[in-house]
Write a protein that binds this DNA or RNA. Structure first.
Lengths: 339, 339
DNA sequence: AATTCTTGCTTCATCGATTGAGCAAGCATG
DNA sequence: CATGCTTGCTCAATCGATGAAGCAAGAATT
């Protein structure tokens, strides 16, 4: 019957032949609207059994081609190398599947050209909706999609031309900076400005975090040191070399720092361990992003954990409601007690 | 011309009309084999320009339906919550794209039912090939795919019915165990059996790692303590509770341990910090898997880093060569010096 | 001048699923 | 018995891209 070496896949026409009925009946039965199409329960049963026996699998390409909506939902994401994006993707898949949508995800390695290429590819696959996560140029992507009549939602980084769901970066940074400043004062009895390292000075999140950072300093009556604002990019290597250069021109180094992402923290920590600076007197750290092992590095680190479940609920809330107004939904992150 | 509010997407028929030519010519030009089909360079140019102007995007659904290969390559992966699987996915996407393949990835959260469902979905999307990464039941997936004439390759965990690419788990575990035993002896002057924690006792990798663990003990003249073999699953919670239970029945606790994945290590470390056991005298650790922050936790941790680039090169080597022999390619992992 | 060859296209069937329209048989109603 | 309604299907067009086959016009060969 169902040979394992079959070359051609079973189609509704094959099943129709076997069942002695029409392809149209088979289609109706297998996609569930056989009642609407007045197919008898008896025939429906027969066809269902046959399909199972023959190992029939729907050809989505044919199905999507014919239908109005593809039920495919796309997401582009910068990297898979940290817990934040990892959980975004995992949660996205789960919520998409719950809604009967097929999620396709692609990673663009923070490369603007790849972002556009990836968006184009998704459009070719007829996605109904595209989530642009942490995109360097979200508006470009929105325009591409709009031309094809495809909805877009920005996640993590906001855009001007589509609804966006982001963290409350200002609030998170404000609280994080407060804590690090307090820790510094407690530990060293000093009220000195913190170092800010990591992120791109041009991206919305970094700018908001810088604003929170500044306001927390102002609150505490500490003047921000402009030479300590190192928005050198996210990559570990960039953070590491920024630290190296800082150490060449400055001594002593700041007592505390605000590190903008776990990815940048990776570089900062590497530099701290390799350079031998800070030996014996660890700096007070604040990290905007959470990682379980960072949490174990010591009690001198505070972390902000972005609320991924809430963020994705907000995303799907927008999708489900069909809203298209250009709101920016801000989800408060969780400032984690260490340990 | 190209309205931003267009409802219908531009098709080759629209372009054909605009260019005053046939859809077939447009198709030939846009998919690059216009020379073969003897279309003049002049017409090709005109069509190309028009396509750009109109923001034409190929309908992959239609294209794939017609062609006999889809150029879609699927991967299923258990989780996105660690660097190992993260880099597998990232590398997979890169290598797939280099070959003009469209990668689709789906995460099955170590759930056998989801694995099967995901494989079915991929088949519906006409993947040419499916990579089953860390699948709990790879042979089930291979069978499903074989029935549809789709090739499968197992990654990370081997299967009996398709070529597999895995790490040299035995070798890695042997070397890792050696090092931890040596560290224990150096630190504590003691030659005592290590704890083994994490992983499923039934999966091939865990069994091989246990074998390496045992052989390293034998080599060192240390008898393995069977009550210290805790293959409790990978999840952090499981590792944590396994530790808790162990501490209830055993004192003193082992001086050193072999932790089977960073994910399990997360639970182990959490337990160590919360329980207050080991306070002041940290255990010597070996972790089968790598994480940058684990590397910074201290010099009492040794890690095995699986060689993801080599593993994926091997996977695509098999794909490119079209080999179908049931070989198991073992890639030696890298045992990292700490720091 | 008749023929073959080449160039540069067009025509049309096809991939598999979907769905509006239609049709035949059976039953009920007037 | 004629008419209309219901049930349970089938027919055929369609989605957009592809490529084998074919055709017309001009160039080259005999």
């Amino acid at each position: 019957m169902n040979r394992t070496t079959q070359t051609k896949r079973t189609t509704i026409y094959d099943l129709a032949e076997l069942a002695g009925t029409s392809a149209s009946a088979v289609s109706a039965v297998l996609n569930g609207n056989w009642k609407k199409r007045r197919i008898s329960a008896k025939l429906a049963d027969k066809i269902t059994k046959l399909a199972e026996e023959q190992g029939y699998a729907l050809n989505m390409q044919a199905s999507v081609l014919r239908r109005e909506r593809s039920k495919i939902i796309g997401m582009i994401v910068p990297k898979y190398d940290n817990r934040y994006f990892g959980s975004i993707v995992e949660q996205f898949e789960t919520l998409a599947r719950e809604r009967g949508l097929f999620p396709i995800i692609t990673c663009t390695r923070r490369d603007p050209a790849l972002e556009v290429e990836a968006a184009r590819a998704m459009l070719s696959y007829q996605v109904d909706c595209l989530i642009a996560t942490g995109a360097t140029d979200p508006d470009r992507i929105v325009d591409l999609c709009a031309a094809a009549g495809v909805r877009t939602i920005n996640l993590d980084l906001p855009g001007a031309r589509a609804p966006s769901v982001i963290s409350d970066n200002y609030g998170g940074a404000l609280e994080l900076t407060r804590r690090v400043l307090a820790n510094c004062e407690k530990e060293y009895g000093e009220k000195t400005p913190l170092l800010f390292v990591g992120g791109r000075g041009t991206d919305h999140n970094t700018m908001e975090r810088v604003r929170g950072f500044r306001d927390a300093h102002a609150e505490a009556g500490v003047t921000v040191d402009e030479t300590l604002m190192l928005t050198c990019g996210y990559a570990p290597e960039k953070a590491e070399s920024a630290m190296r250069q800082l150490a060449e021109r400055l001594s002593p180094l700041p007592r505390g720092m605000f590190v903008n992402s776990t990815i940048s923290l990776e570089g900062v920590m590497r530099w701290i361990r390799r350079s031998g600076h800070y030996a014996g007197r660890v700096p007070q750290l604040g990290c905007f992003d959470w990682d379980p092992f960072v949490a174990m590095l010591g009690d001198h680190i505070e972390m902000v954990r972005q609320d991924v479940p809430k963020m994705l609920e907000a995303v799907f809330g927008i999708i489900d409601s069909g809203a298209t107004d250009l709101t920016v939904v801000q989800i408060p992150p969780i400032v984690e007690k260490i340990g």
